[in-house]
Design a protein around this nucleic acid. Structure first.
Lengths: 132, 132
DNA sequence: TCCTAATATAAGTTGCAACTTATATTAGGA
DNA sequence: TCCTAATATAAGTTGCAACTTATATTAGGA
């Protein structure tokens, strides 16, 4: 158990996603990159908050590693950052059904396939040596 | 885009997981079921909050569908609820790399395998009819 | 060089969520 | 029936996060 609030990237990501408005912004950016102005107009109009409010949410998402920014003239183009979302997924993995150790269900499946191929190609003596 | 705060199960789950203390409780319960008293003692002692505070957090997690409770005499045994976590995962899926439509990467891979097997077993005429 | 557009930041307000202490509820055991 | 253990709920406080309006910053165009 980690200390609360002692943010690693997972902590920051979950703290940021704890706000409904920021989740709406993420969902919008999930449809594709957008300049801050477009986000402010769409989200702001839909839910009745101001441009500065949206800008502040974008800052929070940025600092949480959930979105990326890129300057284009005077515009700032925002998009989802896969890394931040991956951190969230990684946290969820500890609860995955039958989770044990560093491998989740998919990785286990992939590893099974690789192992089968490996065993089919190698002599038994070498296999025994590595297992010891 | 949904309205903010108009909670479906995903909204409730993310709102609940937005609090660091509740994430610590989830992590503890991830190690195995525990009575409320044990949660209060471990988390409470570790982070300096009272029994009622922990009880309130457990209530929030319960109402968010993230934990299950079962009575055992005067004790309440808490454990993680896979359904709530699945809702969170499902939300994240919309950002999955190369996501398109209802199939995520793994499902696409599984579907590919099934399709190949199906195509290998069926006559070409029947296949054409279904496709139209 | 000035103006405008796009965005971020400063500063202030305010509702609420996360806590507190006190107490109610519930089940079992002597 | 009473006592205790385990937990939840009631009621009150308080810090802060999510907003607001006002303004600073930055880049480009006339």
């Amino acid at each position: 158990m980690n200390a609360p609030g002692t943010g690693g990237p997972v902590e920051a990501a979950f703290n940021a996603l704890g706000d409904p408005m920021r989740r709406r912004i993420m969902e919008l950016l999930g449809e594709g990159e957008r300049p801050a102005g477009a986000v402010a107009e769409i989200v702001g109009t839909a839910f009745g908050i101001s441009q500065p409010a949206v800008s502040q949410h974008l800052k929070a998402l940025r600092e949480a590693g959930l979105v990326t920014v890129r300057a284009e003239g005077t515009r700032r183009i925002y998009g989802v950052d896969a890394d931040g979302l991956a951190a969230v997924r990684a946290w969820l993995d500890r609860f995955a059904d039958g989770f044990a150790g560093p491998l989740d269900a998919l990785e286990t499946e992939l590893a099974r396939g690789r192992r089968e191929r490996r065993l089919a190609e190698r002599p038994a003596r070498e296999r025994r040596r590595r297992a010891a």
